[in-house]
């Protein structure tokens, strides 16, 4: 199981980094989503991998799994989900306003959006 989780995190991070380095917003957004999945699984695994163990104190339990990373992951999921939504909206807005879908700033338009000169 350790190998499976480790390679899953590795693959997702690899694909995520590749996509984040692309020039257009859509792959970048996908890459950020993949990176956040990788991080969530990674955080989860940092509490050590345990199968079928209790997270909360119980008289019959034989061992425990760490509940704290699960709480951390929940927070991280909420934040990364919200941020993905924000970046999608902002990327769409940027595309609609400038007719360009790349993440670089470019040199064509004057800064500040001055219309004349």
């Amino acid at each position: 199981m350790e190998f499976l989780i480790a390679s899953a995190v590795g693959m997702m991070t690899m694909a995520g980094i590749y996509l984040v380095l692309r020039g257009h917003t859509f792959p970048v957004v996908l890459g950020l989503a993949l990176l956040s999945y990788a991080v969530n699984v990674f955080l989860f695994a940092m509490g050590r991998l345990a199968i079928g163990q209790q997270p909360v104190i119980d008289a019959a339990a034989t061992g425990y799994t760490d509940p704290l990373p699960q709480a951390l992951v929940l927070t991280a999921i909420v934040i990364s989900f919200g941020m993905t939504a924000v970046i999608v909206v902002m990327a769409l807005r940027a595309y609609l306003e400038s007719e360009r879908d790349t993440v670089d700033l470019g040199e064509e338009e004057p800064p500040g959006g001055g219309a004349q000169q």
Partner: peptide
């Protein structure tokens, strides 16, 4: 306040900071 260049710069800012958060 919007504006094409500002939103584009904003997208860049968000991407950099999301990678930072990761």
């Amino acid at each position: 306040g919007g504006g094409a260049m500002r939103v584009r710069a904003g997208v860049q800012y968000v991407v950099v900071n999301l990678v930072g958060s990761t």
